[in-house]
Nucleic acid binder design. Sequence first.
DNA 1: GGATTCTGGTATACAATATACCAGAGCTCG
DNA 2: CGAGCTCTGGTATATTGTATACCAGAATCC
Lengths: 251, 251
Amino acid sequence: MSQNDTKSQGASPRRKASDPANDDTPRLVIQPIDTSFSFKNKAYAALKNVIISMDIYRSRSDIRLDERQLAQDFGVSRTPVREAMAQLEREGFVRSVPRRGVYVVRKTKEEVIQLITAWAALESMAARLITQTSTNEDIASLRRMFATFEGGEVRAHLDEYSDVNIEFHQAIIRMSGNQVLIHLAENLFTHMRMIRRKTIGEKNRADKSIRDHMNIIESLEARDTARAEVLVRDHALGLADHVARYADYLD
Amino acid sequence: MSQNDTKSQGASPRRKASDPANDDTPRLVIQPIDTSFSFKNKAYAALKNVIISMDIYRSRSDIRLDERQLAQDFGVSRTPVREAMAQLEREGFVRSVPRRGVYVVRKTKEEVIQLITAWAALESMAARLITQTSTNEDIASLRRMFATFEGGEVRAHLDEYSDVNIEFHQAIIRMSGNQVLIHLAENLFTHMRMIRRKTIGEKNRADKSIRDHMNIIESLEARDTARAEVLVRDHALGLADHVARYADYLD
DNA sequence: GGATTCTGGTATACAATATACCAGAGCTCG
DNA sequence: CGAGCTCTGGTATATTGTATACCAGAATCC
């Protein structure tokens, strides 16, 4: 990619870089620059990550994001922080109260139930698709996710199981191969993850969860389309039912 | 750092974030954003790295940096690439020929000898300072750099030795603790590194090199200021002598 | 109840980058 | 050998991202 000569040095004719007569000329190997980098994008990703990692339902007090303080913490001006929060607001993670501040959004119980119901629709269709199009290796990878818990030691490793639980549901959507489903699920997924992480430790749900998961995997392995759909949908709706009955902190 | 309430939710008075009555409110932990990131800076670092990693003396043909091609490879516009190359030119790594292109600079033999001589002045003074101010642990870390080569297996691991060789000289400057020395050496260092990497495999210099290094380390350990200075200076000037005699590719 | 403080909102300035166009130099072809 | 074409660096202008200053509403404090 580099041409070889200059008039100031002998005026030999230029040869194309690919010219084989020139094989020993050192060549540059250049990696692309990450052009998605911007202060706004970094602030957005960091704030989103912080919000979804919090247990925002542990307390009922409002969580306000102070844009001057955040700008100082990030080491940038208020402008990219404001733009990041505007995007988070568009996506439903925060809400802005004029001249009052920006607050992390907690969903009501009713909103959560609706969200889970929509998720169930997407996930159960994804399960159907998996039985029809995925490779045996793909499906096997789902089972391998739970290898650590084969001895039933779910409660002893609840945090780890919580992570695997979330990854499992994400993998089902992804494995469907349907880009529209995947896209629709993306935003719902973040909210679902917060809910799952909160509820997994309640009422020994983890024990039931892994039994459900094993049944789901068996139905996928058997390529039983109807059964996989029902098991996945019922599993998700079981979460909605649990929320309806026990999640008083969502009111 | 987050305030807790909003008028729309009960008009309770704002409390300071540090208010101990509010210990369970989730808190945000925010990492600063790297504000040195820019396309120009990334392009500059990448090009500099590529240039100093090349064996630019292996071929005599000119190495021209094609700014449109680089912009395409980096995935950015020509503007940051141009600015990066302008900075590289200011630092002596490339030169721009109006309406002809930007070329990697090769130094002449005479320039290289002058550069090494200047480096020798800096490094020998650094050695003096080390014998007077550095801790035993610091000096011991110099010896540990060569632990891998204690069996004399230098030629078998020439690339690795070349890297350690460069690190050793860099560490001497750094260990002096003199910020002016360190700063002056910074730009020289990059050119020196290219020369050292090129010459280390010539005329079995690696064997002599490690003997010299051991002698230098012993004089540092003995806190022998005059001897350390002489050994370091002679070692560097030995490189200049080698270049004068054998480095025909620099003409 | 007025002064002060704190916060979001907005306007303007500045820096980084993208893109289009120009002009010089070299190459190609007839 | 000269005209036309191509390739390249240089420059001007536009756009986007960001910084900063100032404004105004709301809450707090004395």
